[in-house]
Design a protein around this nucleic acid. Structure first.
Lengths: 236, 236
DNA sequence: TGATCTTTTGTACGATAGTACAAATCCCAT
DNA sequence: ATGGGATTTGTACTATCGTACAAAAGATCA
């Protein structure tokens, strides 16, 4: 029952289980679920393929455990930040704080795990794109509560915007967030090297700034009738 | 050389090749590249597995052909709409027209192919998330030009915003666009049925409205120094 | 030290993957 | 109608997949 000294962090494989989890997380997040084989994961972790089966039974079980590892801490941190944000007096500042509370834990570590939450968030993005069943189940039962809490909080600081619009815009926020983690190189490329898409701090600030403005946009109902539809040629 | 009468559209399989392309597009877009087997595609198209090899040589070749089919028409349509948008006098209207020119072809058909461009855009989103190599190559050489054209156009109608910020925000736009096509059900769910995430018209209007506001947000450089950083508890 | 439990290794099995290829079939111009 | 290219079918091959399982190795405590 006594833990070994854990030496430093230099210990190569203090825990094979953790090594496998980390390797799987990285590989899944960059290549998707189906493109990565159990053997790939084992090799990246310096483990034996059979060892993966021993610790996680199935490949799905491995993915499930990755989610279990992160969901709790990340949502906890989000709750803390959200609670703090709701106490901000100024309405504009509060909105920004809420958005930040949503975004920051997704980029930085939502837990004590090395590599930070960015990798896990990217993994979620990829699983979502692939329509992964395990992920879908977990998301619906774990993240929807959090999402509702944020949507409600945002709605409170923007009472004149219909909830429907808030939902759409928060959906866009998550999409933008995901995509920033999936292909950060595209930002670097399109900015011709002037911006670094992999810089979390920049991504966060840009995302928060843009999103706050998006939330503050006038509601669709009241905006539409006033403005004329901009010219769009009929399609062939 | 004479085309057959094509009867109506009721002709079951006027062209096996097209049927395979359509089936592959649908399956790839919903399940990702690796999760779908050539046999799955053949079955969905009512074809023989060998027929896929005959028409497209390899699975990669099939994906490549899907891209070839859509990229041209979609980018052409975007160019047309962008050109029209640039002629809009009012600056705010012009920005909206530009954004619309970017968004609309991604949702509606960018070509004469059935099912519309939404399916292809969703496919691009999924391939991007999976880090698919074939897709990566095509995107870099086909879509970057278009993206630059849009970024430049937007920059012209928002000269006071640094190009870097425009790049980030257009990146967010694409992420939001992708995500809306990947998991439209999430919108329906979070809005408790009040919104229909799969309704292209709603998605477009919401996305355009939100994005225009995001582009119009003050630049980061000038915004940051004025505002205090909202309270964010130090992390554990 | 020796017994017992945990973890790792090595290997094997059935299923399915992508692709190749020959035979069968279809289609149209002659 | 018929010859010949285009297409479709059926099948087979090899590689790799996820997973199971027995044996080896390591750890723990009386």
């Amino acid at each position: 029952m006594v833990r070994k000294p854990a030496s430093k962090e230099t210990a190569r494989k203090p825990n094979m289980r953790e090594a496998i989890l980390a390797a799987a997380e990285e590989l899944f997040a960059t290549n998707g679920f189906n493109a990565v084989s159990v053997r790939d994961i084992a090799q990246a972790a310096g483990a034996n393929p059979g060892s993966v089966t021993y610790h996680f039974k199935t490949k799905d079980g491995l993915l499930l455990e990755i989610y279990r590892r992160h969901c709790g801490p990340m949502n906890l941190r989000r709750s803390e930040l959200l609670a703090a944000a709701k106490r901000v007096r100024d309405l504009r500042d509060r909105l920004e704080a809420i958005v930040r509370a949503y975004v920051v834990p997704a980029f930085t570590s939502g837990s004590d795990l090395a590599g930070g939450g960015a990798r896990f968030t990217r993994l979620r993005a990829v699983m979502s794109a692939e329509g992964n069943d395990v992920a879908r189940r977990i998301i619906a039962q774990t993240f929807d509560d959090t999402s509702h809490a944020f949507i409600d909080a945002i709605h409170e600081s923007l009472p004149h915007i219909p909830r429907t619009d808030i939902v759409w815009r928060s959906h866009f926020l998550l999409g933008a967030l995901y995509y920033s983690l999936v292909t950060p190189d595209r930002v670097s490329r399109l900015s011709r090297g002037e911006a670094d898409g992999s810089d979390a701090a920049s991504a966060i600030e840009q995302l928060v700034q843009a999103t706050v403005a998006a939330f503050q946009a006038p509601a669709l109902d009241q905006a539409a009738p006033v403005r004329r539809r901009p010219a769009v040629p009929s399609k062939a």
